[in-house]
Write a protein that binds this DNA or RNA. Structure first.
Length: 854
RNA sequence: GCCUCGGUGGCGGAAUAGGUAGACGCACAGGACUUAAAAUCCUGAGGUAUCUAAUACCGUGCCGGUUCGAUUCCGGCUCGAGGCACCA
């Protein structure tokens, strides 16, 4: 028997699908519901990695499954093709970033097609093309007009390695998300999107996503937005009218305030320095401290006494005013009231500088004493030393304090968020130019919409120094859109996350020339199923939600959320091989049989961890495809773990997948010519094995369907098919009747349909071999008859006092009386029942009998 | 410290409106085929005890609860992964 020639089959069907435009989406198919399945678009780095393969395989199964289930499926793919690596490559080898980028796109597109993904390539987009990024510019100007884009001087995150600023979301543990370099702070004039206008809605609408998005992602976004409800309290600088508002969630401790601390960047600080210049140097040092160092919980808190005092509005008391490195200007009001008795941080600070400690909340044994306390008391208790509030339960007093402050006009309820505005300008070439010009007469002016796109210039030299755009005469020099006089262009470009914040709209009308997208977006959006990595939980996924709300508010779309369902696929892990002596990681392909260090021959440390360049444990998808075939690669990835969990790469597991495909292939080849195109089975004339197989076929169809529908657990879906094929091979020798032979054909056809979404190449080949002429991916998904999935005879476990003692085969509809008497007849059960009293017998039909004895 | 998720054989993982734990696959062992190997096929297997079978007991991180019955529900721990973290 011939083996499956996956190499030639894959070539054949790739060509066929391409020539026939097999996965083109015809939007006009009537009577079908639309279904938009989308995978996060890749950055064209050059080659697919296993993470891509997993992501896109999952998406492809969904697309193919939904297509077979009568949906109009939209399944597009494109390229997030602006970004630094292209520019760095250009600096290194002197070519243009576009050349590098499009070469990478070509290669990765070829690789995607190797895997048989069912994309509608007519909808392909690349964000680095002027046809795409002109709409970034268009929206930017719209947002500027609405006050949602603005420019201001601010202390911003600067990556010295990538030589550009970064948004807060792009700083991880104080390091650049891309290159890992320590981020520093710089005061720069930068562009921002006012995402904070949407803080509350971005938070509230998370409830619309419950059930559709993983809890983890919802929680991460909630924390990132960081809503905190509290009270603003206005302290007054003693001897002046200057108010110092502070934000607190604990107004109940107001009588315990013994000092107030300002951030060194607080606007009042310059006034204080003019009165007390002696601390100027100290303040400057504080400001120059690394921001992430400074805001780390573990770094030393320190402060300076200003020489000034402030008045506590609740009691008119005068307390010292300090400046402290741990107070952040960009959260709350940049000033905090300190209650050392009841706040851990304030307590440490007060001890360090010998500041007063005042107890205002007593514990239940009344034992708190300021002089003997060793830590702050942060639990609940009763208010003391708090004038008319004394005696109240502290939690319950919070509202009363705030109402009182409001009455005396010294404070009110207020809400703060941790979310900051999105810094979107970048000092690099390979991004969307920000469409503004600077005119000596008119100042900063937005470009006219009809002049868009403002295209990236070609006369560019790529060097290590500065933004290359500023070296282009043709780009820099322009005329003012307002007065027409000569002017200079903005040289900053947009963060590439702007591109990916709305690309899913563009796929719907990718060739629309007159607008960002056409009206039909509302027929397809929101995306039914979005699939991608969890690393974008507070980056792309937050920005995309923000953009959708902005687009709704300018009347472009009708919905509030872009992605109804989100699947975050797990990481792909594989063994890394580390030599502790040479301090080197080796790739599996460089190792000998014994897996010892190729350099020093000592044993290597083997560890299962995320595939990465630094661990040198990546597996090249293309090697896998050429050795085992695309189907085997897809099948293994889907089978080894449920999609949301981590996937451990295993060459043996891959061989298992491959082995299953051979079994399936062989089964088909053995029975190919027995019958063709017979789709009618008369149950009565089947042999008993035949009946058994038919029933189990329907059970299998049901289980596979459920596994996919319920939670995309493709691993169990595939397991069911494997189980069924095992059953078929064990029973096929006992098939005897003519009807049985027809059944075999019926089984071959349905198994093939069930496997199609997972392994498209082999199933396409077999479908043709079975005598069909249509493309298999356009055929209806098999249906099961509920009546055939229920058994007439069932197995029931028989327990005595909850322990399994025997088993019973009995008619599914047997009465309790019959079940009881049959259960008691079982020898293995009976021996536990001698000389004991049976208290009761519990019968759960089709499942279990439990005999309770004394 | 806070938030989220998780802990089941040698391994990846099944099974939860509470009802026969370990499907499917990998690895392993034995056998068949072969001059031999590979490939393929068949068989076996949670652990402990007994020579084997039969059997008994133990078993879903730990302790306790509810129940005829708990991997599943409840309470308390513990360990691991990920995220946030001086947020006032």
């Amino acid at each position: 028997m011939e083996k499956f020639d996956f190499i030639n089959s894959e070539i054949f069907f790739r060509e066929k699908w391409k020539n026939n435009n097999a996965f083109k989406q015809y939007t006009a198919v009537a009577g079908k519901e639309n279904y938009y399945v989308l995978e996060m678009l890749p950055y064209p780095s050059g080659k697919l990695h296993m993470g891509h393969v997993r992501n896109y395989t999952i998406g492809d199964v969904v697309a193919r499954y939904k297509t077979m289930n009568h949906f109009n499926v939209l399944h597009p793919m494109g390229w997030d093709s602006f970004g630094l690596p292209a520019e760095n490559a250009a600096i290194q080898n002197g070519s243009h970033p576009a050349v590098w980028t499009f070469a990478n796109i070509e290669n990765m597109k070829r690789q995607l097609n190797l895997l048989g993904f069912s994309y509608d390539w007519e909808r392909e987009i690349a964000t680095c093309t002027p046809e795409y990024y002109r709409w970034n510019q268009w929206l930017f100007i719209k947002m500027f007009e609405k006050g949602l884009a603005y420019k201001k001087k601010a202390s911003v995150n600067w990556c010295p390695h990538d030589k550009t600023v970064l948004a807060n979301e792009q700083v991880e543990n104080g390091c650049c998300w891309r290159c890992g370099t320590n981020v520093i702070q710089k005061d720069l004039e930068q562009w921002f999107f006012k995402i904070t206008d949407y803080s509350e809605e971005l938070l509230q609408d998370l409830s619309l996503l419950e059930g559709g998005w993983p809890d983890k992602v919802l929680a991460m976004q909630k924390n990132w937005i960081g809503k905190s409800q509290g009270t603003q309290v206005d302290f007054t600088l003693e001897g002046s009218d200057s108010k110092i508002p502070v934000f607190t969630t604990r107004p109940d401790t107001l009588y315990g305030v013994t000092y107030v601390v300002l951030a060194p960047e607080h606007p009042l600080v310059s006034h204080i320095l003019s009165i007390n210049p002696s601390i100027k140097a100290g303040v400057e040092t504080m400001k120059s401290e690394d921001r992430f160092e400074r805001s780390s919980e573990f770094s030393e808190k320190h402060g300076l006494y200003t020489g000034q005092n402030v008045i506590n509005p609740i009691n008119g008391e005068s307390v010292p005013l300090w400046i402290g490195n741990y107070v952040l200007m960009d959260y709350g009001t940049g000033a905090v009231m300190a209650v050392p008795a009841h706040d851990t941080r304030d307590f440490q600070f007060a001890k360090k500088y010998s500041l007063e400690i005042k107890v205002v909340i007593q514990n239940s044994n009344n034992s708190l004493c300021a002089t003997s306390m060793e830590t702050a008391y942060t639990e609940e208790g009763t208010l003391v030393n708090s004038a008319q509030f004394s005696g109240l339960q502290n939690r319950e007093s919070i509202e009363k304090f705030t109402l009182h402050l409001s009455e005396i006009r010294a404070g009110d309820f207020t809400t703060k968020y941790k979310l900051r505005d999105w810094l979107v300008s970048r000092q690099r070439y390979w991004g969307t130019p920000i469409p503004f010009v600077y005119c000596e007469n008119c100042g900063m002016v937005a470009e006219k919409l009809e002049n868009l796109p403002i295209a990236l210039p070609q006369d560019i030299e790529f060097t290590e120094n500065g933004n290359p755009l500023s070296t282009s005469e043709s780009f820099m020099n322009c005329s003012c859109p307002k007065c027409g006089k000569s002017a200079k262009r903005e040289t900053d470009t947009m963060d590439t996350f702007v591109d990916s914040s709305w690309y899913y709209f563009r796929y719907i009308t990718p060739h629309e020339d007159n607008a960002m997208f056409g009206d039909s977006v509302n027929k397809w959006m929101p995306v039914n199923q979005y699939i991608g990595g969890v690393e974008h939980a507070v980056l792309h996924l937050l920005y995309a939600r923000f953009f959708t709300k902005v687009l709704r508010d300018i009347g472009m779309v009708t919905h509030a959320e872009p992605f109804t369902n989100l699947l975050t696929q797990g990481m792909v892990l594989s063994n890394s091989y580390f030599c502790p002596d040479c301090k080197l990681y080796f790739n599996l392909t460089e190792l000998n049989e014994r897996k010892t260090c190729p350099k020093c021959n000592l044993p290597l440390t083997v560890k299962m961890e995320k595939m990465s360049k630094s661990k040198n444990n990546g597996i090249d998808p293309e090697r896998i495809i050429s050795e085992f075939g695309a189907d085997a690669a897809r099948l293994f990835i889907l089978f080894a773990a449920p999609p949301e969990r981590e996937l451990e790469w295993s060459e043996n597991g891959l061989m298992g997948a491959s082995r299953f495909l051979s079994k399936y292939w062989n089964f088909i080849q053995e029975n190919l010519n027995v019958y063709q195109n017979i789709d009618f089975i008369s149950v009565e004339t089947l042999s008993s094995s035949g009946k058994d197989l038919l029933k189990n076929l329907h059970k299998t169809i049901k289980k596979v369907t459920r596994s996919i529908e319920d939670n995309f657990h493709f691993n169990t879906a595939i397991a069911c098919v494997m189980e069924y094929l095992n059953l078929v091979s064990s029973l096929k020798s006992s098939l005897s009747t003519e009807e049985d032979k027809k059944l075999i054909f019926h089984i071959m056809k349905n198994l093939t349909l069930l496997l199609q979404p997972f392994v498209p190449f082999i199933t396409a080949k077999i479908f043709i071999d079975l005598g069909y002429t249509q493309d298999i991916h356009t055929i209806d998904w098999p249906k099961y008859k509920e009546s055939l999935t229920v058994d007439n005879i069932v197995k029931m476990g028989v327990q005595v006092n909850g322990k399994l003692r025997g088993e019973l085969e009995i008619a599914a509809d047997a009465s309790e009386e019959v079940i009881k008497s049959e259960a008691l007849k079982i020898d293995k059960v009976g021996k536990y029942l001698e000389n004991v009293e049976i208290i009761k017998i519990i019968i759960i039909k089709k499942r279990i009998v439990n005999i309770v004895i004394k």
